[in-house]
Each structure stands twice: as C-alpha cells, then as structure tokens.
Design a protein around this nucleic acid. Structure first.
Lengths: 205, 205
DNA sequence: GGCCGGATGGCACCAAGGTTCAATTGCCGC
DNA sequence: GCGGCAATTGAACCTTGGTGCCATCCGGCC
C-alpha cells in the first residue's frame, strides 16, 4: 500500500509555517497548514493517517490541550515544535504519546526524522483502528443472546454448562454457537478466541 | 499483596543522596544508595520490583546509558533527576521508558509522586514478567513434538489434519494433545489459545 | 544388555460438537 | 393483524474430541 504522506502544520507564525511547508513539500509530503488549534480542530477530518506538527505556545487552544483532544482521534501522531519549551512540558508531551518534542530553531534533519516516524506511527495506529472497527462491525451482527453465548464459549465452557447458566437447553446453545461462528466468519474455537481477544471481549464470568 | 517500597538511589553527590534518603525513608520507602552507575549495575540483583532514581550526569556510566542496560531488567522503573538536563535529553529518557524526568532542585511532592508511580509501574512490570516466566516454565515441560502439535491446535486445525501434516495418525495427535493440555494445566482449547497467546506462541503455519 | 522416556499405532468406547429438518413462541414495525 | 426476526425446542444423525489399555520402536544412559 502507498504510505500516507499527510502532514498537518499548526502554528500561529505565518512565516515559519510557510518555511516549513516549503521544506516538507520539497520532501514529498502533503502539507496543510492551520493557524490555530481551534481552527485545526474544526477542519480536521477523521479520515486518513497523518502527522501533526504542533506549536506548544499558541493563542487560544495551546498545543498540550489540543493533544488531549486529539487523543480521542486515532490515526494522528503528534510532533511538537516550540520556541519556549521547558523540560516538564516536554516530559508531559511525550508521556501523553507525542512522537517527539523539538525546539526552534529546528534542524531540518530532526524535523524530517520526527515527521517520518510520526507518519509511520500514525499509519500503524490507523490500521490498528480500522482492524478494530472491523471486528466491532462483525460483532454488531450478533444478537444479544449470541453475544452472551460467545462470552461463555471463549471461556471454554461446555455447551451443557452454558445451557445451564443461561437457563436453556444444550441444543439451543449449539444453534446459537453455530450462528456465532457463521456471523463472525471463523472456522474454529481457536479462531473465535483470538477474534474475541482482539475485539476486547471479556470471557463471561 | 504488600506493595514493594524499594527505592534505589544512584547519584554521585553524597549530600544530595543523604538528603533524599532521609526524605524517602521518612515516607516509608526502603532506600539503598549507590554512588555510580557501575556500582549500581554490579550490586543490583534482579529480584524485587523497585524504582530507580537516577542522576543523568555522572562520571563513568551516565544515566541514559545505564537506562539502556536496565531495559533488559524488567521490574525496575526509572525516574531521572538531574541538575543540568535539557529538552532532548528528557525526551530521549521518556521515550526510552522512564517514568519521569525531574530537575534539581526537586520539589518534595514531585519526587514522591514520581517515585510512587515508578513503584506502581515497576510492580506491574515485575508481575507481568513473573507471569511470563511462569508460562515459559510450563512450556518447557513440553517435548518438541508436543510443541509442534500445540502450534497446530491453537490454529484451530482438526486432529486428522494435524496428523496428516505431521505424517502420523489421528490417535497419536490425540495423545500428544492430551499431554499438552495436562502439562500446561488447561481445561479447554479456549484456555489453551489464551495461554499460547500470552506466551507469544505463533500458530503453526 | 537392560532401562526409560518419547513417539507411534490399534482398538474400543463415551462424551461433546455440529448439522439438518421441523416447529413454536413472543416482540416489533408496517 | 400480519410478516419477519430473535429465541427457543425436539429428534435424529454424523463427526470430533478425549480416554484407557496395550504394544512396538528407537535413542540415550547406566
């Protein structure tokens, strides 16, 4: 697959923005600039994977707060870039998941390295998210009862035990179980367990 | 369980070490001090969970390099403490897994918070490591053939298919499979799959 | 040579999983 | 109310899984 090359630039200094845009576009990145955090939040779509290059100190929504908003949006990796940063600030940013925390004036090589690994991470998160969404889409096909049965099956319980717990007969469980396997498109209990594990489904107590 | 309260102090300034020791011991931590990175590496045992408070700038082995050595030792969480740090240094430290990066003079509350969450993380890593070691100890009970069969079972293959692939009979597979379940102390395929997943065993192709 | 553990195989038996055909009940929306 | 879907149940039938007993073969070790 062709790797995404989207870079979003959020900075309130037009000169710097222009310079960085030129630099990054020269490297083949697809750059889009925003002059404030609010502006970015309004316009950004939750679509492709991208690397966000973010100034920390901006009027309005500052970089670290914007990061919190973006945490809910997978597929975006953040690289901070600031002129007046300090150590606690950088520590907080990285702990909160930023790819890097660069200081102005930034060396061209540093920026490119950070943006590169940011895009890498963004793509990884993005496809992980898509995979997760896929699992949940298939899960949504199940009826409530089937989900319940699924929970017991991945706990390794026998059909008769499940039937007992759910107050029904073994045969009924077999039917549900068969439908679960069919709807989730898995061919064995082993696959089912892996599916459930990836989808974050807890075994029924 | 009683939570570990071991704190290892690595700093080449005896005064600071003494002060921090008093401070931490007053809070109920069990403190042990070392005056160089080499010294620490020689004496530290790979036993309990602990939080290491580490100066970055020390003669001999510096903090960041020591961190690399300690990465191989799970159960240790690192809190950096330094007088002459800069942003790139802190970024590198946190990226490499440090719990926090504090600057001297450190506020008492900051240190205690960092050490507290360091110990928390150390314990989490420590028990995760023990669990992992446990899994591998049980895995070691399996004969090569049994491990092979395990790989196929967690792929969800039927006994007859496994027998075919391994060039033997279905009955033989059943016997191996039974022994695997017994040695790994699991009662169902579901448990077996979860066991293998946690132990990092890839399904047989 | 003799012993032991690992791997293999045959046979029999029972339990559990899985499918098909057929049917009933209850709820929801048109 | 009717059609459709979810949930349920029954019976019959076949496939798999799992166990026990017995037996053979091979390679390493005392």
């Amino acid at each position: 697959m062709s790797s995404s090359r989207n870079v979003y630039l959020v900075d309130d200094e037009p000169e710097l923005t222009r310079a960085l845009t030129r630099l990054l576009e020269a490297e083949g990145f697809v750059v889009r600039a925003f002059d404030s955090g609010d502006d970015f939040l309004r316009q950004v779509s939750n679509g492709d994977a991208a690397c966000v290059v973010l100034d920390v100190a901006m009027p309005g929504l500052d970089g670290l707060r914007l990061q919190q908003h973006l945490a809910a949006m997978p597929g975006l990796a953040i690289v901070f870039l600031t002129g007046h940063g300090d150590i606690p600030m950088s520590v907080q940013a990285i702990k909160a998941g930023a790819v890097d925390f660069l200081t102005k004036p930034v060396k061209r090589a540093d920026l490119l390295r950070a943006v590169g690994s940011g895009l890498e991470r963004a793509q990884a998160m993005h496809s992980a998210m898509k995979a997760h969404a896929d699992l949940h889409a298939r899960l949504a096909l199940l009826t409530p009862r089937e989900r319940e049965v699924l929970g017991h099956v991945i706990s390794g319980r026998l059909n008769k035990i499940i039937a007992d717990r759910l107050g029904t007969t073994e045969h009924t469980i077999k039917v549900h179980r068969g439908r679960v396997m069919e709807k989730l498109a898995v061919g064995s209990v082993a696959e089912l367990v892996r599916f459930a594990q990836q989808a974050g489904i807890a075994p029924e107590s």
